[in-house]
Design a protein around this nucleic acid. Structure first.
Lengths: 208, 208
DNA sequence: AGCCGTATCAGCCAAAAGGCTGAGAGACCA
DNA sequence: TGGTCTCTCAGCCTTTTGGCTGATACGGCT
């Protein structure tokens, strides 16, 4: 049986080498490349065509993880992308799944969980850490409170302190549309002001 | 020459194993124990008396890293504690140094930097990543950017999403005074809007 | 006594944000 | 085909926020 080829994407050296060492203990899993940024990840996918891409969402500079997932999925659908990150933010989960992620693992996951996720991913199975799953489950029960991908994207930028104008420019939409999205976000988060939305988002959603 | 004994403290399995593999390449450094929480860290220090403790500040549950550092330093002063974390939050840096940390490294540090910090620590040398050092330096050079107690209090409430009116009511001052304080806070943080101030406060100052 | 930092307050004006209603386009699904 | 969801945009009006200038009061330091 051919071993599963894996690309690791994480901007922290120690995380990459830790993961590599960990995955190295499994005979059927082989790390064929590493990348420290979204751009590098794309190049490595191009060069090695790994079966699975294990990716951190928080990348220091340049392209973020979500965008990298989207680009990888757009190229051709043969790579399964697994998110491997520290925080279980609602917005990140929604956006990652929307971008085409096959699974969502937290960094404190047990090794067996990680192995299982990688093996499952090549067979088209979605695997996610328990806290992530429970968040999604929660969302399924209260669909009225679930942010749409676009709203999540906006909220994420909101937490960086951007104004409506800046949000519009960043997302290539009018300020009017920004205000519409914001009104929906406020309603879903149960707040009245942008300040409260930011506070809620960062505290409750784990963004930073 | 005896090798330097090290205790790794991090709640993420992969980070611990990555660091362990990395440090394993150095003949003079030996990882003698690992811990996934502050409580475990104290027990491991007790049991192994490592020369250096390499510790993440963000611990999932229970005692946080800062408190763990304090306890370790209180026991007896023979362990040098190195902070090894993801974020260079001003508040965290100050608190860690105050608690007795010997050095402050970021997780994207180069391996050589990490080795050097560990070797330096046993000789009583402080080592910190460049971004961390520059933040401390910045603070020393620009005391003008330090918030007054009242401003800090306001900023803290600000990150809870309160409006100017609410801030005034909470602090028993007029809205005009709130606006004055806010203007000073914005100037010191280098932002123009309350949203950016909240984002900056939570991210950079470590409030949450 | 005079200076400085801190905290308090006021008024005025411009800009930003928020509430409301309405509406068109595209996707998806029953 | 019709209903629903999402994303997009507009206009109008009120509230909030931010920029500016200036002022009083208290405490500590020189």
């Amino acid at each position: 049986m051919r071993s599963i080829t894996v690309l690791l994407v994480d901007d922290h050296f120690v995380v990459r080498s830790g993961l590599k060492a960990l995955l190295g203990t499994q005979p059927d899993i082989q790390v064929v490349a590493e990348a420290a940024s979204g751009e590098e990840a794309l190049a490595m996918v191009e060069e090695h065509s790994p079966a699975v891409v294990v990716m951190d969402l928080a990348m220091g500079a340049g392209m973020d993880g979500i965008e990298a997932i989207r680009r990888i999925r757009e190229r051709n659908g043969r790579q399964a992308v697994l998110v491997f990150t520290t925080y279980d933010s609602d917005a990140d989960i929604v956006r990652a799944v929307d971008a085409g992620a096959m699974g969502y693992l937290l960094k404190d996951a047990a090794p067996e969980e990680i192995f299982a996720a990688i093996r499952g991913a090549v067979q088209g199975k979605s695997v996610m850490s328990a806290p992530v799953a429970s968040r999604l489950f929660q969302q399924l029960r209260n669909p009225d409170e679930v942010l749409t991908p676009r709203e999540a994207e906006l909220l994420s930028l909101l937490t960086e302190g951007l104004s409506n104008r800046e949000l519009g420019q960043r997302l290539f939409i009018s300020e009017a549309t920004v205000k519409t999205h914001l009104a929906h976000i406020y309603a879903k988060l149960g707040v009245e002001t942008r300040a409260a939305a930011i506070a809620t988002a960062i505290r409750r959603e784990g963004m930073r």
